[in-house]
């Protein structure tokens, strides 16, 4: 490249950069990504991809989708998930069937790697958007994700 085309290319690229930041500058008032946190605590919504904690959604009949296959427990690299399970009699078929008693989740050990959620065949667990996870007592970080008296949704294994 010649000496002068070098200079003109240099100026052109510098101006391109300045026009980009200039646009950001003009849009900063409405496009600011800063959250003024304690002030907007009521309205603050976390974005979809945020990894706050693992939750197990239940529907209105208090039914979840966890079959107790323990794939998440095996996938977890640091033993965050412990599934306490039992064998019960299935009413329809009369056969013995595995079902979860307690899905124990230790938030204090979780690194938010997401392997358990990737590996779940029935999408029973997913990311929650709660970000205020600090507590005064660390036992509060050990959570049972399935609600009491809940059971697995019928037909989820098919």
């Amino acid at each position: 490249m010649g000496y002068f085309s070098n200079i003109f290319n240099g100026i052109k690229t510098l101006l391109t950069g300045m026009s980009i930041t200039g646009k950001y500058f003009l849009n900063s008032r409405k496009g600011a990504i800063t959250q003024q946190y304690p002030d907007n605590r009521e309205t603050l919504k976390m974005f979809d991809r945020f990894r706050g904690e693992v939750i197990m959604p239940h529907d209105e009949n208090n039914e979840h989708a966890c079959t107790g296959c323990q794939k998440c427990e095996i996938a977890c690299p640091n033993g965050t998930i412990e599934i306490i399970w039992d064998r019960g009699i299935d009413e329809e078929t009369g056969k013995k069937k595995k079902k979860i008693d307690q899905f124990v989740y230790h938030l204090s050990m979780c690194t938010m790697c997401g392997l358990c959620i990737d590996v779940c065949p029935t999408d029973a667990i997913e990311w929650g958007q709660n970000f205020e996870n600090s507590v005064y007592d660390r036992t509060a970080l050990t959570r049972v994700l399935n609600e009491p008296e809940s059971k697995v949704r019928a037909g989820i294994e098919d």
């Binding site: 950001y24 500058f25 600011a32 003024q36």
Partner: peptide, 10 residues
């Protein structure tokens, strides 16, 4: 303040 506005901060 100007630096913040250039970086979409407050």
């Amino acid at each position: 303040r100007v630096a913040a506005w250039f970086q979409l901060r407050i």
